[in-house]
């Protein structure tokens, strides 16, 4: 086989794998979209592969706005999740940088402490979190939820940032230090710009993790007008009734902000490394 033949085969296989992966993703998602275009009656009564016994309808997308306070769900999610993401990523970037650049007493302990805190089964944290928030009068508020979410994200984000910082040579820091930069300046002006892809990935991660969180919101939030989007969506399904059509159309609406964020930020993600950086 010549080189060009091999290359062609290689790229054919690549496309094949990609298309296969996309199908695996898109088939369930398309079922979601189809469901969101059905009436509840069609969902219950249609048999077999019959898609739209009475034709597709967009009425679900309109009805949910009046049936449920979708706007306030979105607002609450944005406040608590957006706030926690910013807070967590700032803490994590600083912490990750400190861990990757310095040797100091308690470093090992701190690293495993951050990890260990992730390991306690989440269900057993529900009651203590509630107690904390009640004690500081922050239960049933978006701000309270924000703090809780930040504590979920910080460990992972720190570890991620720690990982990214480690891939960047310390010779850059030294060069900056010689040029008279303070540690903070070195961090902000020299090292951080180089980890933008990692920073963006971490941010997206933190945002999504909490955007999709349900269990804690369902316990820590009580008022209807303070529910987050996932909490609101999940109340469309309970033991007595599952409103598939609402559930699916609301889920699609709920994923629009995350899609937008992703589409917007993936430019940063693929921007790659700053040209000419000193590498190992």
């Amino acid at each position: 086989m010549t080189n060009s033949q091999r290359a062609r085969w290689g790229s054919a296989i690549r496309y094949f794998i990609l298309v296969l992966g996309c199908l695996l993703v898109l088939l369930p998602v398309s079922w979601m979209i189809i469901t969101s275009l059905k009436t509840m009656q069609d969902i219950t009564l249609s048999k077999g592969v019959e898609l739209f016994p009475n034709g597709p309808t967009v009425s679900n997308y309109i009805t949910i706005w009046s049936e449920y306070p979708m706007l306030s769900y979105i607002k609450n999610s944005l406040i608590s999740v957006g706030g926690s993401t910013i807070f967590a990523v700032v803490c994590a970037a600083l912490c990750g940088y400190g861990l990757s650049r310095y040797e100091f007493g308690g470093k090992k302990f701190l690293l495993s402490f951050l990890l260990v805190t992730q390991m306690f089964p989440a269900v057993m944290k529900i009651i203590p979190y509630y107690k904390i928030l009640v004690n500081v009068h922050l239960n049933d508020t978006a701000f309270g939820l924000m703090i809780v979410y930040a504590s979920f994200s910080i460990p992972f984000c720190t570890w991620m940032m720690y990982g990214y910082f480690k891939t960047i040579s310390t010779s850059l820091d030294e060069a900056a230090r010689i040029d008279g930069c303070s540690p903070l300046q070195t961090f902000f002006k020299v090292v951080l710009p180089l980890t933008i892809p990692g920073l963006v990935a971490t941010t997206i991660y933190a945002f999504l993790q909490n955007w999709n969180e349900y269990m804690f919101a369902s316990v820590l939030i009580r008022s209807d007008d303070k529910k987050t989007l996932t909490f609101g969506i999940s109340s469309m399904a309970d033991a007595y009734r599952i409103q598939w059509n609402y559930l699916m159309s609301a889920s699609i609406i709920a994923s629009v902000p995350t899609m937008l964020i992703f589409v917007f930020l993936q430019k940063q993600l693929i921007a790659g490394m700053t040209a000419g950086a000193v590498k190992e």
Binding site: C91, L94, C95, F104, A150, P183
Partner: peptide, 13 residues
Amino acid sequence: TPYGFVAPATITM
């Protein structure tokens, strides 16, 4: 310096 960097995250946790 390193403690300054790690303080915000550590205190929150």
